[in-house]
């Protein structure tokens, strides 16, 4: 069972970094905040005994995907003026309004959520592997096709000559 103090600290940190992702003026800070979000999530996964997912969060997302993000941001080299122009006051107002409404709904949901019962299942590689090749075999195979489509799509869209 996760200790409440740990849970609230990590959650607060994760939410704060998530806010950083959308509020940061410079894309580079946004990406770095996203790394922090992933570390926070990974900690929560560890607390839930989902060790494999926690490791994947760090290795694949924080390690590989976000490094790519950083490369893209650095290569694009966005002008600060262009970034400022992209901010629209009315859209922000509407967004905040919807966000508050959504938070209100979420609070009502949180009150009504049933308490978790039972112990967390072991999130080891063996357990996940077994699930992937038994219950979730079909979605797993479909996901492989999805990746293939992603690869084909990336090549088709990015290459000048096929």
């Amino acid at each position: 069972m996760i200790h409440p103090a740990l849970f609230y600290t990590v959650s607060a940190l994760t939410v704060a970094s998530a806010l950083g992702v959308i509020l940061a003026r410079r894309p580079i800070y946004a990406v770095l905040s996203l790394v922090l979000v992933l570390f926070g999530l990974s900690t929560l996964f560890v607390a839930l005994h989902a060790f494999f997912v926690a490791a994947i969060q760090i290795v694949v997302y924080a390690g590989a995907v976000l490094v790519l993000f950083l490369f893209v941001v650095m290569l694009l080299d966005m002008e600060p003026e262009a970034l400022l122009r992209a901010r629209n006051k009315t859209m922000m107002g509407v967004g905040i309004l919807f966000g508050l409404f959504f938070l209100g709904q979420l609070a009502a949901v949180a009150k009504a959520l049933p308490a978790a019962t039972g112990k967390p299942l072991p999130g080891t590689t063996a357990a996940i592997g077994k699930l992937l090749f038994t219950t979730y075999a079909l979605p797993f195979e479909a996901a492989s096709l999805l990746l293939l489509v992603g690869i084909i799509g990336a090549i088709v869209l990015a290459k000048k000559k096929l």
């Binding site: 979730y136 079909l138 979605p139 479909a142 996901a143 096709l145 999805l146 489509v149 992603g150 084909i152 799509g153 088709v156 869209l157």
Partner: peptide, 25 residues
């Protein structure tokens, strides 16, 4: 018959269509 299957299937449709829509470079 399962939400996971449903999500993967819908993503397969969506991602294919993203690529197809952008096809005219």
């Amino acid at each position: 018959a399962h939400f996971v299957m449903l999500f993967v299937a819908l993503e397969l449709i969506s991602i294919t269509f993203y690529v197809l829509t952008t096809y005219l470079q």
